Simulated assay, not measured.
Amino acid sequence: MQLIITDAWLAKSRAIHLSGMKLLVSLCAVSVVLVFASATLYHWVFLKGAREGWPIIGTLVRLVVKDEVAQQDRFMRENIEVMAKRLGEMQAKMIQLESLGERVSGLAGVNPAEIMIKPGQGGRLVIGRDLSMEELQATLNELDQLANQRTDVMTVIESRLFEQKIKKMMVPTQVPVRAANLGSIFGWRIDPITGRSALHTGLDFPAEPGTDIFSAAGGVVVTQEYHTQYGNMVEIDHGNDLITRYAHASKVFVKKGDLIKRGQKVAEVGNTGRSTGPHLHFEVLVQGIPQDPQKFLDAGRTLAGAQALKN
């Protein structure tokens, strides 16, 4: 393709030769320029007409804006409905949790009023209601506050239950020698050595030498020594001025200051000290005064039976 450009003033002519590739590139460049110019002109005219309120353009703008607002409103309403449904489900679960908390607090001996919680206060019910954004936000705030209160209640309940568990673990209710017959019981008896009436301050469990002796509860070893009367002896402090004593052992496996778990092996049955045969002499002392160990062991059996019935 050949283009001839003539200048009338200078009386000159100029010829431009365009091959197929150059022609294609030139057409593309011209098309891009025209599209850009058209878009710029359309944008300028549209904005000017929208600002000045030209009849056709103003109507078109209002229709577009109205459609966008409707779409946004519909989108927001759908999201609010979904959030309200989820909020209703959360609130129903919160009410169930509140009811469970009240029952558990009764088991733990906790009164919700002690920590400024009003029982049965679940907030407004939102299931099946159309909520505005303000109502939705207010309900969320109420649920957040209620969740914090429930957390406080559960924390106190956990602390009380843990405290109760520790107390139970520290009370000597476990039989210290398994599969052993009970010998002499707590109380007055004829002393087998002197033949005189004397107070027997514990329980005797006759058993073969080497039979395992277990701690009746958790605690701390406060005495581990050889005593002329009790032979190899271990004393465990369980707190609250309560101590258990294990006497006449052949071997001892703990020392003073050791932390002892409930049911832990502490010694083996023997015949040391003032004894007429291999057995464990088991005592429970409260503020240094001997108590009948059988009452503690019976309480442990009663508690175990009650738990078995619940299960």
Rank of each mutant, 00 (worst) to 15 (best):
P55R: 13
D67A: 09
M83F: 12
M116V: 13
L131T: 01
H43C: 02
F46E: 04
E98D: 10
E52G: 01
G122V: 00
N79V: 00
E78K: 08
V61M: 14
T139E: 10
Q72R: 15
I57S: 00
Q149Y: 05
V61K: 13
R124M: 14
E78A: 11
M90F: 06
G109E: 07
Q72K: 08
Q71R: 14
V82P: 00
M116W: 05
A92K: 14
I115G: 15
N79W: 00
V64D: 13
M133C: 11
L146V: 04
L60N: 07
E52D: 07
L87G: 05
T151C: 02
K85L: 00
S105L: 04
V153L: 13
I127R: 14
T59A: 12
G128R: 05
V69F: 07
V104L: 12
V82L: 08
G88C: 09
L63K: 10
N79M: 03
E142Q: 06
E89R: 10
S99I: 04
E68K: 04
Q91R: 10
R77W: 15
R51H: 14
P119S: 03
Q137K: 12
Q121W: 04
A92L: 08
S132V: 02
G49F: 03
R77Y: 10
K66L: 12
N148V: 07
Y42V: 10
G58R: 03
L143D: 04
A138I: 08
L60S: 06
E114K: 01
R150W: 01
I115R: 15
R150F: 01
Y42T: 06
L60Q: 05
E135F: 05
I95S: 09
G53R: 07
L87M: 12
W54N: 08
R86L: 12
F75Q: 05
